[in-house]
Amino acid sequence: MTLGRVIEILEAEVVVDAIDREMEIRSICSSDLMSDLLHFSSRPKSILITGLNNTQAIRTAEIADIKGIVFVLDKRPDKETVRMAREKGIPLMVTRLSRFTACGRLYAAGLGSCTGEDR
């Protein structure tokens, strides 16, 4: 599905916009602990759903080729985090939903886990 569709499903607010909202998203990864994400996220074109709204999430996305980040529970990234995301070209979104519900909605809409363990 497109990033634009992800934004709609999560009723998310865009903080750092993507160059292209038509960009394809194929899978989801989700954790508040970065090494848990780095253990998998081997599938390309994935989006990160996390409660960790700091620069470490941006670095992790950059290192693991994650295409965008959605912060849950209305957790807004600070200025430095926004600045780094812009510099690295990583779109940032904020949703009021919980991590469970955000992942659940996307899963129900057809996105699988970046771990490749489900579908």
Binding site: S31, D32, L33, M34, S35, D36, H39, N54, Q56, T60
Partner: peptide, 17 residues
């Protein structure tokens, strides 16, 4: 450290992998 997103205890296994 865990509040910063680290300390999952997966770092060394991830390096090896």
């Amino acid at each position: 450290i865990r509040e910063m997103g680290w300390g999952a205890g997966m770092g060394l296994p991830n390096m090896k992998k």
